[in-house]
Amino acid sequence: MRKESENPSEKSTEGIAENAVGRTAEKKAGKSNIINIIILCVLSPIVIITGFFLFKGKNYYIICAALTVISMLPFFISFEKKKNASRETVAIAAVIALAVASRAVFYMLPEIKPIAAVVITAAVSFGYEVGFLAGSMSMLLSNVIFGQGIWTPFQMLGLGAVGLIFGLLFSSSKYRYNRWILGISGGVVTFIVYGLIVDFNSVLMLSADLSLASVVSVYIYGAPLNLVFGVTTAVCLILFGKPMIEKTERLKTKYGIFEKG
């Protein structure tokens, strides 16, 4: 109760402080954008070209793993440069931990992994940057528990990309409360995007010379598992997406976090 009464004043002081840092933060954001463009436009061609000359068209695996890491760097750098309120940082951490812990809810039904559904709802209500961070970090974190591997960057990029897509498509769209649209698109995007990116790791592991036939055969072999993951995500979003987004929206207005503009 006391907390509630304190809130309005706290929110306003925080708002003033944020405005004060806003101008410098804008400059910093511009700088980080330039750094990101340099990373993407300079670093990735360098990796591809040196990889090509060093390995003479072999060893796609290490080049792809390096490219996966490079493609994620801009998001982390812009998160580092951005002046977030401490509440926002902790809320992102809470979303990541929720995504990881959500697997523990369904210990009776081990096939069901609502991790993508949690990431999608976070992306829809908190925006695409949070979506990407939540997706990639929750994969990194769950691999701290289940074991890291060379697949970690691919999984991080896969779920991060799902979060990014939903943040961009739905975060200011009126369809975000429509459970059917959100659920079905969630299932399809998880199946296609996450499946393609993560199974690319298996492709690199199992087929030494990348030929169309070997790539397709590995993808077909992995499709049923991805389908289960996609259907799970769709079911979770249909049943649970709307109340979860309403909860996070309420939190946003109550504490004044992740406000745009």
Binding site: E80, I92, A93, A97, L98, A101, A104, M137
Partner: peptide
């Protein structure tokens, strides 16, 4: 990446708590 590390360590503490 200090902020990312903070995120990681906070979530690592939250996950068992949750």
């Amino acid at each position: 990446l200090p902020k990312t590390a903070l995120l990681l360590t906070m979530s690592l503490r939250f996950a068992p708590m949750y």
